[in-house]
């Protein structure tokens, strides 16, 4: 009978030292500065908090997953010996996995949150009417970071070859960010005269990026622009339950690759 409880104390320790390490590395700082600069520039050129949020949406939806999946894979490839060192210590594999995963995800999320929030505070961009959108933007960014780092980890775990792994990471991003929508658009365009609305709603759930995009866009313009044809869609995502389900699905998108990776990692020969 194997214990399934996560030994959290060693996970926290690994995370703690992982944070010491990662927070001192230049690329994490650069990542934070990128968001800081982007948000600041948007404020200086665009003005209002709402406009900035709309412009940041694309950054969050496309840059965050790209960086997360690539860094996730690369980080694991680079930490291979370190992970081995940890494995030879009296530590459970799940705490090592959790600690190393969190050791990348937490600093990335922190940098994202800080980089985006700081300009909002000092430019006074947070007003009550954009509060919800702002929170959703931060939430989406954090979720997408966590999901795509997990995806990068999964890829790097399964594929020993680093070049192949990095290529696959990029391919995954391309698929979720571009190709997937191409396929859906194709389906929608050629089968739009059938009642496919429920299908379109379902398709959204199969792509975490799309989920985040819809959650964010509904906050801004999408619901109004859907018109009557989009009624099912609008009603679904417009309801508390729909948004709840979408957010829940994002968590599923996080936990599934993470769980599968952990399972794989626990059995893997290193």
């Amino acid at each position: 009978m194997q214990t399934i409880s996560l030994p959290l104390s060693s996970l926290w320790k690994i995370l703690k030292y992982g944070l010491y390490d990662v927070m001192r590395s230049r690329w994490v700082l650069f990542y934070g500065l990128f968001f800081l600069a982007a948000t600041d520039v948007l404020f200086r050129f665009g003005g209002t908090g709402e406009r900035v949020i709309v412009s940041l949406m694309n950054v969050v939806l496309y840059v965050v997953p790209l960086v997360a999946v690539m860094l996730g894979a690369m980080f694991l490839y680079n930490s291979r010996e370190y992970v081995t060192l940890l494995l030879t210590q009296p530590l459970k594999r799940q705490s090592i996995f959790g600690g190393v995963y969190a050791g990348l995800t937490v600093p990335l999320c922190l940098m994202f949150l800080l980089g985006v929030s700081l300009p909002f505070f000092y430019h006074g961009g947070i007003t009550p009417d954009v509060m919800q959108a702002f929170v959703l933007l931060l939430f989406s960014g954090v979720m997408l970071t966590a999901i795509f780092v997990a995806l990068g980890f999964a890829i790097a775990l399964v594929h020993e070859d680093r070049v192949r792994g990095m290529g696959l990471a990029l391919a995954h991003w391309l698929f979720f960010a571009v190709v997937y929508n191409g396929i859906v658009l194709f389906i929608v365009y050629f089968f739009g005269h059938y009642p496919i609305e429920n299908g379109v709603v379902a398709l959204t759930f199969l792509n975490p990026l799309d989920l985040a995009r819809i959650i964010l866009l509904l906050e801004f313009e999408l619901s109004a622009m859907m018109g009557f044809t989009g009624a099912v869609f609008r009603q679904f995502f417009g309801s508390g339950m729909g948004i709840g389900l979408a957010i829940g699905a994002l968590f599923v998108w996080l936990l599934v690759p993470l769980g599968l990776s952990l399972r794989y990692f626990k059995r893997k020969d290193l």
């Binding site: 320790k13 010491y20 390490d21 990662v22 370190y82 081995t84 009296p90």
Partner: peptide, 30 residues
């Protein structure tokens, strides 16, 4: 593994930690 000390062929540690921190980390973990 508490009874085992292992010295790998290639050793790599978190690159931004100092030697002292790495040793402290292992003590802490064990």
């Amino acid at each position: 593994r508490r009874w085992i000390g292992y010295m790998p062929q290639i050793a790599q540690f978190p690159e931004n930690l100092t030697v002292k921190q790495v040793l402290a980390m292992i003590e802490d973990l064990r």
